[in-house]
Design a protein around this nucleic acid. Sequence first.
RNA 1: GGCCCCGUAGUGUAGCGGCCUAACACGCCACCCUGUCACGGUGGAGAUCGUCGGUUCGAAUCCGAUCGGGGUCGCCA
Length: 617
Amino acid sequence: MRHSLASKQGQTREWRDVMRTHRCGELRAGDAGTPVILAGWVHRRRDHGGLIFIDLRDSSGLVQVVFNPQIAPEASAVAAEVRNEFVLLVEGEVQPRRAGTENSDLPTGAIEVVAARVEVLNPAETPPFPVNQDTPVDELTRLRYRYLDLRRERMAANLRLRHRVVKFMRDYLDGRDFIEVETPVLNLATPEGARDYLVPSRVHAGSFYALPQSPQQWKQLLMVAGFEKYFQIARCYRDEDLRADRQPEFTQLDVEMSFVEEEDILALIEGLYTELAANVGPQFEVPSPFLRLTYREAIERFGSDKPDLRYGMEIADLTSLVADTEFAVFRNATEAGGRIRGIAVPGGADTPRRGLDALTELARENGAGGLVTVAFTGEGSLDGLTAEDVRSPVARFFTPEQFAALGRACGASRGDLLLIAADRDAVTSRVLDVLRRRVAEDRDLADPGQLIFAFITQFPMFEWDGDEQRWSAVHHLFTAPFAEDVELMDTDPGAVRSHAYDIVCNGQEIGSGSIRIHRRELLMRVLARLGMAEEEATTKFGHMLEAFTYGAPPHGGIAPGIDRTVALFAGERDIREVIAFPKTKSASDPMTGAPSPVSERQLRDVHIALDLRAARS
RNA sequence: GGCCCCGUAGUGUAGCGGCCUAACACGCCACCCUGUCACGGUGGAGAUCGUCGGUUCGAAUCCGAUCGGGGUCGCCA
């Protein structure tokens, strides 16, 4: 095996018959006295005029190679000309380092390789940014030279972590009788959901494939086919605007099971993530069992369906405490059917005026008319609160006892700051969620050493789409409604609960799934509710409707995002840091230049004529 | 699509109307240096300030447009 590469390249010199004998990062004190041949990159060179030290790097790590002109004058002469990122083949002997020169920061720091011979396998230009240190570099430059960016320790470690995460998932599911099945990348375009990436058909003039937004229908068909337990590390494509946690192509762990209820799926995923954490992220504190919150509960307590649970500041309903107030803002809000809700910022009483103004502005940007702040100062419990202990723009409207009651409802003590919003629930939830996250960020309340997972369940089945003037599916078309809510589909669609669920962690949605509809009649009813005529339903989903007539088992699944999962365990906030070759925010690749115009010939082949008038204007 | 931030030697930053003949650090080049490991020392090269246009006696600096990168809202079943 080792010989094949060398002989293929026509190497003749005997000492290169075997490309290398060891890997740099593996050498230890026990290897002292061993002759070795190493290959790798020059990580860093330290030239002392006589002695030259080169840290040689391969995928296993670093080892110090020392060139001594009195021992190996030729090798030393070569080493003097070598520069960072040159590729070298080094022959030498492992020796213990001299007493006092060991480097405890390096796994190989007890030894060094005394070079006898060296060959430059390939010189290297000076890299456009430092490869041997983790310095900030412009995103564009990193992507332009991604192969160099990936040489850097941080990115290399992230991709190795990613491999271990995916490997663990495969093993975990394989061990539970799941089989991995690949599904097509060229698909039927479907309405609903994200914008599709389209692929023109050459054979069918004027027709297009769509790249999968997820293998949703395929996995359900695999259930109809009787596999019962399926998974896939699936690439998904969505042509929407990008974010730090969104790429045009991303990877999901796609899972589907038959003869299961919601609880089976959640238990499977909870087990997977718990064991995954123990395996690839033992440094994280991962509380289990995972918290379960209904959608309604999550919105009520955190204003969000993906709450960051690493800190408190739960939302309290204060409406009844200030029901009879003279304060017009509160009164108007309640009379209009809204509520008064607030959170307590621990230690927030010291927030300067400027900080309070910024929070108020943030509340306004998110739809609130304003924000009421209440700072509690002084000592002791809130019971003994006096007017002097309360700083608030609305101080004259309420008694100290009323303020104390508000504080207690929010779980506040002296030194804390109440943030109170009054409006419809949709507004107060949104505003308090944003404020809660901002305050946590400003005050460093989120412990980076914790990964707090939770399941959010009972998502609503439908939401009103104001633009389209119709109801649309919150999760997706095939999500099963609660049996007892089915009758509400005609009378009160917004109240129908579904068997859709999310797994969230630290304020991020990690994945979502649902129990599916497996009966044709129910699917038809849902499609009708979504305003889809029977004819359209048949055109777009005829294959699914038909499949369901041949004995579709009850089934459901989930699809956690691999990129986001790896980013969590890597401690990265941007999924680009865990993707080998990501795209920029405008979905382009600065390295290859994709996307690019294509030749007239290529366009003609697929029957496309360009009309760029709209794009240019 | 809206809003916001950024674009100055290879990299990261400073400079924000004339003191800029654009500064600093790292990197790069040369020379010196036999135990360093972010080696050290001395010297040197290197950007006309993303692009285009405007304001001004004078623009890296102000204004507009444009391109690119990033953030965010919309969007993302």
